[in-house]
Design a protein around this nucleic acid. Structure first.
Lengths: 231, 231
DNA sequence: CATATTATGTGACGTTTGACACAATCCCTT
DNA sequence: AAGGGATTGTGTCAAACGTCACATAATATG
């Protein structure tokens, strides 16, 4: 792993080069406080900016929201949530990769991949106080922010703006999930792979083919043969 | 169609018996004002009660919300929305059946079936002002309530309670959609049919096998053979 | 009630997919 | 640079699925 010490936007970051599958490199900001700089409380407020195209939020509301966040560093393979546990947090990925998966007939079924600048939780468990029916695991080291569900619900009550942000975020989530469902129903395995190739080529660099295959609803071997047919 | 004149909860209803597929009958409340009773403005406020298990709403907020609704009677086969149109409304089904579908390789792909006491819209088109990528059609006559999107967004701004209701409704929608996606990825066609049989047996009475097959992501013939194997 | 229309069941056949076994390659560690 | 574990590719075969064609059953229409 090549390490560059470039300072970026904030003085509180290293700029790392993370090696990905296929000899590709990706810039990932790893949050580290540097000892010889003045102490300032880090905050996810800058990262939330990347979400403003989905839902708007004023500076004041962003500060209020960010104030309830706590930082969490993760290494590769950490579990944020395991099946059967009660999900207590909503996470925001500053850097790092995550996946959601569950077991079916002793096989892992990957249902989602999540990268920088996205929120992530098990909403059913968080909201309905039921045991989670899938795991959330990191697949690359990184830095997250998290909010406890009690804080989240309080923020919703305190700030109509944050409540509206939450609703708009959910609208976005639902629309994406609905599109994903339609996509699964109408496309055959080859069409599904081709559309990933054209619309999310980065996904192929960040998840293994084995993981991708269950996401596409096909076996590892079939995905391998589709790739051969297309090359 | 057998017609019974039983009066139910409110004096403003007939109680109808609708004939379904397979010589089954279903009770459906058809909203009709009876001439010899005092004139009262009908309202969806009673029906919204059936949603309180999903999201809470005070009487005041319910009245405010219901006040913006307009009634719409539909007959079988009416289109609420066609591909390419901009969705302007969110509907609430008081009675009647609806389906969402689109075309792929000249075939109809059914992506959802909706019955009494549910909201229904094309959220992507409604929210993002883009042309709809699927149709919404009634598959049985009935009575709907609808809200224009401008009124909906105004209600969100006027009432924090309605905004919270909207958010909670979206949480519910997203959770259900996510479950549906996971279900599609982990179950094979036979498992999918069996789970419909055990968890939504009414669905089999209300939609045709042809419609159900595309919902399960398989061909009409395969579904027919699965049914034979299981009998 | 008779007929037309639509929905569902089934046979035949070619294609696709999954499962298993194993080979080749990649990648991480030392 | 070398070794070892993980990932990916591929050969073989059986099972599942889709498509086409047509039969049968259910439903709608007059």
């Amino acid at each position: 792993m090549t390490l560059c010490m470039n300072k970026v936007k904030s003085n509180y970051f290293h700029k790392d080069m993370l090696k990905l599958k296929g000899n590709k490199y990706l810039h990932v900001s790893i949050f580290k406080k540097i000892n010889d700089l003045p102490v300032m409380k880090p905050s996810p407020v800058h990262f939330l900016q990347s979400l403003l195209h989905i839902a708007s939020l004023s500076h004041e509301a962003r500060d209020l929201f960010a104030g309830k966040a706590t930082s969490q560093k993760v290494k590769k393979g950490d579990y944020l949530l395991r099946e059967g546990q009660h999900c207590q947090y909503i996470w925001f990925i500053e850097s790092g990769d995550c996946r959601a998966f569950h077991y079916h007939h002793e096989k892992e079924i990957n249902t989602g991949f999540y990268f920088e600048n996205t929120f992530l939780t098990n909403l059913n468990s968080l909201r309905n106080n039921v045991p989670a029916d899938y795991n959330i695991q990191t697949t690359a080291a990184g830095s997250l922010w998290k909010w406890h569900k009690d804080d989240l619900f309080l923020l919703y009550e305190q700030s109509p703006e944050i409540a509206a942000f939450g609703r708009q975020w959910l609208e976005h989530l639902f629309i994406e999930q609905e599109k994903h469902t339609h996509w699964l129903k109408k496309n055959n395995p080859e069409e599904r792979y081709l559309s990933i190739l054209s619309t999310q080529p980065d996904l192929l660099q960040r998840v293994s083919l084995t993981q991708l295959s269950s996401y596409l609803g096909i076996s590892r071997e079939t995905l391998s043969r589709i790739r051969r047919r297309l090359s």
